[in-house]
């Protein structure tokens, strides 16, 4: 079942770190979106792009939408928030997807792909079942996710689009023990994937890119 809330906001692009020039302060964060990096200037835009990754303690409970973004940005007035989001949308630095709009969802899944960051730390048994750690080897995990999300995190970089990743996971789940029907249904996996993304984005465990 999809998380409650409005259209999801996803950051697009690979964080390439801060850019300083000539001993001056930071000019902003560089985001790789294709052949060249895009400088997202310090201030509301960089803050909004960062905030679009989500907060770890919230993203499993609510859809990461404009209202969540506004909350993180400390009550930025709605017109200002809309202006900043519109600018990031125009520059291809965020994508906004309403799961209730099948055509828009399919378009997003067919035109974006996933790349993973950080290391896979493997399975741990918890009282509620198995979880999988993601982080830097030798350090505690920065995120524990379900085995299915871990599978997406592992394999999606090898697949050309999010849609292809969802279909691959649905097909490969057929042979798994104790599988639920929605895990083998490509349409259900595509919808679930919309929620998995922020589970990973919130800790920098990967990034989205537009398919070129």
């Amino acid at each position: 079942m999809s998380l409650p809330g409005g259209a999801r906001l996803y950051p697009v692009g690979q964080r390439l770190g801060e850019l300083h020039e000539d001993g001056a302060g930071s000019r902003g964060v560089v985001v790789g979106t294709g052949e060249r990096g895009v400088l997202v200037e310090d201030g509301d835009r960089a803050d909004a792009w960062d905030a679009a990754h989500g907060l770890g303690h919230l993203v499993r409970h609510v859809a990461w939408d404009r209202s969540q973004l506004g909350g993180v940005l400390g009550g930025l007035p709605s017109p200002d928030l809309d202006r900043v989001v519109a600018d990031l949308l125009d520059r291809g630095l965020v994508a906004e997807v309403d799961p209730g709009d099948p055509a828009a969802t399919e378009r997003f899944l067919a035109t974006h792909r996933w790349f993973s960051r950080l290391g896979g730390l493997g399975q741990q048994e918890r009282p509620g079942g198995f979880v999988c750690g993601i982080g830097v080897p030798g350090a505690p995990p920065v995120r524990e996710v379900s085995p299915r999300v871990y599978e997406f995190w592992s394999l999606a970089p090898e697949l050309p689009t999010l849609a292809a990743a969802a279909d691959f996971l649905a097909a490969s789940a057929v042979d798994d023990d104790g599988v639920e029907p929605e895990e083998t249904d490509p349409a259900a996996v595509r919808l679930a994937l919309l929620d998995w993304l922020h589970d990973l984005l919130c800790v920098g465990a990967g990034w989205l890119e537009v398919v070129r």
Partner: peptide, 22 residues
């Protein structure tokens, strides 16, 4: 090659060095 560590960019103290790490 596929990058795994976060890309940190450079710093004001050492603008010619671009780092990867935590």
């Amino acid at each position: 090659a596929v990058v795994q560590l976060p890309a940190l960019g450079n710093t004001a103290d050492d603008p010619d060095t671009f780092s990867l790490g935590t």
